[in-house]
Design a binder for these strands. Structure first.
Lengths: 224, 224
DNA sequence: TGTACATCAGTGAACGCGCGTTCACTGATGTAC
DNA sequence: TGTACATCAGTGAACGCGCGTTCACTGATGTAC
């Protein structure tokens, strides 16, 4: 006869172990993952509750035990997608790069996160304009927060390089420029898909662009 | 009794005048406009043929006299939307601005076109990531063409300002940076909606950003 | 100019299908005693 | 530890609705003679 271990495995694959709370959480997770996967080549607004339920392997009505609607599910996905995006900023900050390294470090970290959380970044790009109104609003809000966060980092960085003092408006414009560069790069990487060569070209082009912006910033005088 | 003119007007509002070809073209136009309006707050992938037909005031099956499918209609909308986008580049080129004017002229032209062809620009932003696969591919292709077009313009401009010679890669990177700035500005303006104050802030911020990039470009040395 | 015929944009009925949502339910898990 | 009851994630039938697509049609416009 077999060991207890193998019996556990069978139990695991058949009826799924854990407390009621754990099992509910696992189903919720499966719903979020299924939704992320299913809307990858269209949009939340074209995703049906029944498709999601079918993909997860539950009956359509079970969906309501976890979310009120697809829009509600979308808001949860916005939350966890921006955890992925913030992780990029956090990693760059933690690595505390020198002047010479800053661009290479940032681009590398960004591409690394995009590669590992591809569906989160795709989700943001797609639903930012095409999602249900509440989802669009949530994404816009999160992007503003990320911009503010980055503005602080940039102020420390550029000031430490001895650039001349800037106006508040100019800081905002620079932070916005970087956030846009980030979003655009994510878009380009996602466009490139699995093509490794294309991804390298995107990375190299992004580095060139960021260097160019940095040259501009270091030669900048506010209110010229 | 009334003049022939007024009888014509009645005829016009009742049964619509013109040859069969003209009337067909008018219906086609109405379908395109209705689709542009209806998908404004979701996406083509969530738009139904029946909604469009209802908005136009024809029976659903009449749709097939003009387009094979919603995707087919989408490709037609990509075509006319990029006519609007190209008009921006063309206007800037035709105005033949001096060094001092170039940024103000470009931003003004861009905002002017976005304001007048709002739904076309919204359509591109939205469907670029959320549209049906064929529509996404068509948009990507058109953006690449616009980038090439802009690269030529930029080369003339920056060279005429006496910057040092650049590598081909760097031209591509700069053109891409400007196209992205353009797309991002369009997105920001569309986000701002009808808020005139917010629109002015977006315009001012964009000008600051373009100046910063221009400062970078003029201080740039290829392969530093 | 008048007539007979062809074209074809738009009609309207019909189809099977997937949708969101309701409701009463089941039965394993959790809790109170 | 054992029992009786409460909770609640997931079930399954049913509903009315809008969907894309088919088909045979109508009747005004266009064309050939």
């Amino acid at each position: 006869v077999h060991r207890t271990g193998s019996i556990d495995l069978v139990t695991e694959s058949d009826s799924r172990p854990g407390t009621r709370v754990e099992r509910k959480e696992r189903t919720r997770r499966a719903i979020l993952d299924a939704a992320l996967r299913l809307c990858e080549d269209s949009s939340l607004v074209a995703l049906s509750l029944r498709q999601v339920a079918k993909e997860v392997g539950v009956v359509p009505t079970a969906f309501y035990r976890h979310f009120e609607s697809i829009e509600d599910l979308g808001l949860a996905l916005v939350g966890e997608s921006f955890v992925s995006l913030r992780a990029v900023l956090r990693d760059v900050r933690r690595s505390d790069p020198t002047f010479e390294e800053i661009i290479d470090t940032s681009v590398e970290s960004l591409l690394d996160h995009v590669d590992r959380q591809r569906s989160h970044f795709l989700f943001i790009c797609r639903e930012r304009f095409a999602g249900p109104p509440a989802v669009r609003a949530a994404i816009r809000h999160e992007i503003e927060l990320a911009e503010t966060e980055l503005a602080t980092d940039l102020e420390h960085l550029v000031t430490s390089m001895g650039a001349s003092p800037w106006s508040g408006e100019d800081w905002k414009a620079l932070a916005n420029l970087f956030v846009r560069a980030m979003v655009s790069t994510v878009e380009a990487v996602l466009d490139a898909g699995d093509d490794g060569q294309a991804q390298k070209e995107v990375a190299e082009r992004t580095r060139t662009q960021l260097r160019l912006v940095l040259v501009g910033a270091l030669n900048w005088r506010s209110r010229p």
